[in-house]
Amino acid sequence: MGIVFFLIGLPEFKKSPKLTKEAKKNITYIMSTLLTLVVFMVIISWNIRASGDLMLAGPLTPPMKLLWGQKVLTLGLLEGLWAVVSLKWLLPFFFDPLNLNKKQILVVVSGIVFSVASGIYAMLEAN
């Protein structure tokens, strides 16, 4: 996406060959937002991979179930923490306050709850 912004160019970039303060500010906001989203996507991909290994792998020994359950639980908690930090503090710092509706909040929370619940279930099943 950053390359798309660069290729399209913001209006400030087309006015002057030199970067103005406003253009530098816009670049900083765009890159910070993209970095926030990339971190969120990396955490989610690790979580999905760990959940898939836990659920789709063949019969696992109890220590393996405990290990994978702890990993899924930890990633679910990390995902929840990053969601709160990014939605409440980071993204509103770059933009105006985000007005998320209940459906959008429900989607984010349901993914986190499902991950945490599956991690806890796997850990309890291992014992």
Rank of each mutant, 00 (worst) to 15 (best):
I3N: 06
F6T: 09
I8G: 05
I8A: 02
I8F: 07
I8V: 12
G9C: 10
G9A: 05
L10H: 03
E12S: 14
E12R: 11
F13P: 03
F13R: 15
K14Y: 11
K14G: 10
K15C: 05
P17V: 13
P17E: 12
L19K: 15
T20I: 08
T20A: 10
K21V: 13
K21C: 04
K21A: 15
E22I: 12
A23M: 13
A23K: 04
A23E: 14
K25N: 14
I27L: 11
T28L: 14
I30E: 03
T33P: 01
L34P: 08
L34Y: 13
T36C: 06
T36Y: 02
T36M: 09
V38K: 03
V38A: 08
V39M: 00
V42E: 03
V42M: 07
I44F: 09
S45H: 02
N47C: 04
R49I: 13
A50P: 00
S51C: 06
G52H: 14
D53A: 12
D53G: 10
D53E: 15
L54F: 01
M55G: 13
L56C: 06
L56T: 12
A57P: 12
A57T: 15
A57M: 07
P59E: 14
P59H: 12
L60F: 07
L60Q: 15
T61L: 12
T61A: 13
P62G: 02
K65E: 13
K65Y: 08
K65H: 09
L66H: 06
W68D: 02
W68Q: 09
G69V: 02
G69N: 01
Q70E: 06
K71D: 04
K71I: 10
V72A: 02
L73V: 01
T74E: 07
L75I: 07
L75R: 00
L75W: 01
G76P: 01
L77H: 06
L77N: 06
L77P: 01
E79D: 13
L81C: 12
L81E: 03
A83N: 13
V84Y: 10
S86R: 10
L87H: 07
L90Y: 12
L91K: 08
P92F: 04
F94G: 11
F94N: 15
F95E: 10
D96N: 15
P97Y: 06
L98C: 07
N99Y: 07
L100I: 11
L100H: 11
L100A: 13
K103W: 14
K103S: 14
I105L: 14
V107C: 05
V109F: 06
I112H: 01
I112P: 00
I112W: 01
V113W: 05
S115P: 03
G119L: 04
Y121S: 08
A122M: 10
A122P: 01
L124R: 15
L124E: 13
